[in-house]
C-alpha cells in the first residue's frame, strides 16, 4: 500500500470561498509550483481521491455536498482546510449564511491559514497531510492484521 504516499490523488471543493484560494490551489498544479512532481493528480471523482482540499467557509447549501464528498472517499483519507475562511470562517464569520470553518461538518487534519493562502503554504499543508495519511494507513493495517 505504499503507493498512496508516492502518488496521492487530491480532490478539491469550494465550500463558499471567494475564489482566491481556489485559484491558488490550481496554481499549485501548474508549472511554477508543480504539485504533480510529488506524483499528485487532481481528480474530480471522490472515489479516486486520498486528500480532500476544501476552500472557503461552509454555508447552508454546501454543507451536504462537502459531507457527501467526504463520505464517498475511501479510507484512509485526510482533509486539508485551505485559507482562513475554511479554518474559522475568516472575514465572513459573521455572515448570516456561514456556519464557520470546515471542521463544523467533517474532521479536518491540516489547517492552512492565509487570505488567500499562498501556494507555498498550500504545498506545505499537502505534504504535511501526506505524513498523516501514512500514519492512518499504518494504523489501519495494524488493525487489519489483528
Amino acid at each position: 500500500m505504499s503507493y498512496i504516499t508516492k502518488s496521492p490523488w487530491i480532490i478539491h471543493y469550494d465550500g463558499s470561498s471567494c475564489n482566491g484560494c481556489d485559484i491558488e490551489v490550481l496554481a499549485c498544479l501548474t508549472p511554477l509550483y508543480d504539485l504533480e512532481r510529488f506524483g499528485i493528480v487532481n481528480t474530480g471523482n471522490p472515489k479516486h481521491a486520498d486528500v480532500f482540499l476544501v476552500t472557503g467557509g461552509i454555508n447552508e447549501q454546501s454543507r451536504e455536498v462537502v459531507k457527501n464528498t467526504y463520505d464517498q472517499m475511501p479510507d484512509p483519507k485526510v482533509v486539508v482546510a485551505i485559507g482562513i475562511c475554511a479554518t474559522t470562517g475568516g472575514v465572513f464569520r459573521e455572515c448570516y449564511n456561514i456556519m464557520g470553518g470546515v471542521d463544523k461538518v467533517i474532521p479536518v487534519d491540516v489547517y492552512v491559514p492565509g487570505c488567500a493562502a499562498r501556494p507555498e503554504s498550500i504545498i506545505d499543508g499537502v505534504v504535511r497531510a501526506l505524513g498523516i495519511l501514512e500514519e492512518k494507513r499504518t494504523k489501519m493495517t495494524e488493525k487489519g492484521g489483528k
Partner: peptide
C-alpha cells in the same frame, strides 16, 4: 438562493 435564515 437558499439561505440559513429565511429572507435575511
Amino acid at each position: 438562493i437558499e439561505t440559513r435564515v429565511p429572507t435575511p
